[in-house]
């Protein structure tokens, strides 16, 4: 699954650690999400969507 997390984070000038703190996850989780090594759970995807004020499908796109 592709996502726009890195772009959205860069627009706000946040580091991975900043975003991790806001989402209550580790910096490694943010890195794994951005590099496509991990797909988030539904609760985490909702938290990300709420934080950036966008619907989930505007942040995560199914590659199929």
């Amino acid at each position: 699954m592709k996502n726009r997390l890195k772009v959205l984070r860069a627009e706000r000038d946040w580091s991975q650690a900043d975003l991790a703190q806001r989402l209550d996850v580790s910096r490694q989780t943010i890195n794994a999400l951005e590099t496509g090594k991990y797909d988030p759970s539904l609760p985490l995807a909702f938290r990300i969507a709420r934080l950036f004020g966008q619907p989930i499908e505007a942040i995560f796109q199914d590659e199929a």
Partner: peptide, 14 residues
């Protein structure tokens, strides 16, 4: 520890 686990940002390590 912050340097090790939060070291993605060269500007300031949290």
């Amino acid at each position: 520890l912050g340097r090790r686990i939060n070291g993605d940002d060269v500007r300031a390590v949290t």
